[in-house]
């Protein structure tokens, strides 16, 4: 079982995820239409590029935008969750050892304590994100089962990972579950709402270009995100 998950399945899921992301990313930009979107993307690449970069990086800074500042609760929950969701898969020591073995590459690794903190933070934040969906009427009204499913798919690797880490019950069972959930997540990324992992950059870049080219950027006004 373990061999299967770390062998064929790993290769398939990773491939599907990466190729899927790349394909959709390219499709996104090819599907942009200057006339339908009413943005002259190609006529002003410099202005568009500047707008796009600003629009992305401002939103990646915690409390970097009016949006984050006016909604501190979700800002904290969002960054708490996403720091874990992005950093742990890539920079956990265990993951890196695995990657070195499989791909012959490895990234910088997180200190074990820090990794623990991020993981717990992600789980706790996910809990608050769920709570928010249950409690706030303005969020509840839009929330669908699909949203909970996505949250579950996203957080399952963390929970199973923690269960394995603290050896609650049988280690190898939780480890397999963890790998399984992780691979499920990889598969889910290109095909579900989790596509926002890369489409976030695409969508923000698009609106950034819109403001950078048409809505004031070329008048010398930087959008006050």
């Amino acid at each position: 079982m373990h061999d299967l998950l770390t062998g064929v399945f790993f290769w398939i899921t990773l491939g599907v995820c990466l190729i899927g992301m790349l394909a959709r990313f390219i499709m996104y930009f090819r599907g942009l239409s200057w006339q339908l979107d009413r943005v002259a993307y190609t006529s002003y690449p410099a202005a568009g590029f500047k707008g796009a970069v600003r629009s992305i990086y401002k939103w990646l800074i915690p409390f970097g935008t009016y949006g984050w500042r006016t909604q501190p609760f979700i800002a904290i929950a969002f960054f708490g969750f996403h720091l874990g969701a992005v950093l742990i898969p890539l920079f956990l020591l265990g993951h890196n050892l695995f990657l070195r073995e499989k791909l012959g590459i490895s990234f910088f690794t997180l200190n074990a304590d820090v990794a623990d903190i991020f993981t717990w933070m992600a789980v706790a934040s996910a809990f608050f994100l769920v709570l928010r969906r249950l409690v706030l009427p303005e969020v509840r009204i839009m929330t669908t089962r699909y949203d909970y499913f996505i949250l579950l798919v996203s957080i399952a690797p963390f929970i199973t990972g923690l269960l394995a880490r603290y050896q609650v019950g049988e280690y190898s069972f939780w480890l397999n579950m963890h790998i399984f959930c992780g691979e499920l997540l990889l598969i889910a990324i290109p095909f579900t709402k989790l596509s926002h992992v890369f489409l976030f950059f695409a969508s923000r870049a698009q609106l950034g270009m819109d403001f950078g080219i048409k809505r004031g950027g070329m008048k010398g006004t930087k959008m006050a995100w």
């Binding site: 930009f29 239409s33 949006g67 979700i74 969020v139 839009m142 709402k193 926002h196 698009q206």
Partner: peptide, 22 residues
């Protein structure tokens, strides 16, 4: 007429409600 921009907007909306107060 619904191409990548709007398709993506409708798909990736997190239903997070951050736009509510705005």
């Amino acid at each position: 007429t619904v191409k990548s921009r709007m398709k993506t907007w409708l798909e990736i909306c997190a239903h997070c409600g951050m736009c509510a107060d705005s």
